[in-house]
Design a binder for these strands. Sequence first.
RNA 1: GGGCAGAUGGCCGAGUGGUUAAAGGCGACAGACUGUAAAUCUGUUCUCUUCGGGGUACGGAGGUUCGAAUCCUUCUCUGCCCA
Length: 425
Amino acid sequence: MNLIEELRWRGMIRDIMPGTEEQLNKEMTTAYIGFDPTAESLHIGSLVPILLLVHLQKAGHKPIALVGGATGMVGDPSGKSEERNLLDEATLNRNIAGVKSQLEKFLDFDLTKPNAAEMANNYDWFKNISFIEFLRDTGKHITVNYMMAKDSVKKRIEGEVGMSYTEFAYQLMQGYDFYWLYQNKNCKLQMGGSDQWGNITTGTELVRRKAGGEAFAFTCPLITKADGGKFGKTEKGNVWLDQSLTTPYQFYQFWLNASDEDAEKWIKIFTFLQKEEIEIILNDHQKDAGQRLLQKRLAEEVTEFVHGKEELGKAIETTHKLFAGQTASAESLSIDDLEGMEGIVKSDFAKDKIESGIDIVSLLADTAIFPSKGEARKMIQGGGVSINRKKVESVQFTVDSGLLLHKKYLLVQKGRRNYYLIKAV
RNA sequence: GGGCAGAUGGCCGAGUGGUUAAAGGCGACAGACUGUAAAUCUGUUCUCUUCGGGGUACGGAGGUUCGAAUCCUUCUCUGCCCA
């Protein structure tokens, strides 16, 4: 399979410009994807474009990861129903640095290779362009009619919130990026999420009109969930690639909890497993779906790719301790088990208060497991709190030293999956 | 600059003087079922609480009224149209 065939099979191609496949077969091609520095870390939504770059590099082509230092100052209207707030400079700089360092982990920058990856920041070329220069040399090549026909613009004009000139001009900036990379880096291909198609084609158009060159593009579909929910969200919000924002355990759990339908699609997109191997996994999974072999393999592969083998090991270990022996009593967990669990929230609590007995509601509020007593009470009444794996039946429940595991610990569950460890000190 | 239409809880959206902490939907959280899924069903969803109740809230500020999300004044913001 060539690159495009493989990506097609994985379900990673949505729109593709004619001639792209031929270009990739013809020669080592330089290609880029832009990442917006809207947050300090990328989240798993950005994983797909990252994987596209990795696939591209594996196939012998040269990837450029572009951080939108300049475009991030303007705000991409694609997929947004409302005008965005502009980020202040300090935030933006922090975000650029964060995003950059993450991207660097996934690509091979070894300069001895002809297809070594490169990083770019479009601020580097935009900072020297004057407004007049931009209008005369770039804006002149693209008609407003053309720009208005883009989905991202059309939706906003037809909607009721409108769109500022700033955001309207965004596609020209992104278009210029492609043009600049074409001229200076011989970059002939841009990839991105399908919401970027409009911005990308403005780029290929600019390359054609301004440089008389030929540029190519393809996009990957936006990742969806079978139940229609947003991909990449959990009860705690976004799933980030930065382990200080989403622990490897939580990251692993996210993939493990995928539905069958989603996991089947995702294992092709988010792992590098070959077709034959995936077919075997799917087959095994169907024999006994309850084992969730598919989800386990998916979670392992993706967690290892993002966080490494060591972190994956810890995540699996914690998972085993918390879930494998659901029937085993909390008392059977050793001190090492309790202390060694990564990814669960730990907090200290005054030992004497527990020894003299404390009502469950106060305990949960004081340890910040719940923000207030009212919420703790509600959750207990709804049957959503367990201590040492036993459901708390009443809000009157009193916690005393008799409940402490190893005379020191309390294992608290909020819902089924959120674990907290209280340590009496 | 002028005219018109708007601004309600995380989002959408009902409500035009009192029983409105505010219908309904979405989202989110929890429970049941299960496979730590999906689908389905049930409950919760401003906030604090000694569970009796308290505090805030319908863009901001003022006013009318016993009583205002609802009426008046004014300001801010948004959209549309005209110049």
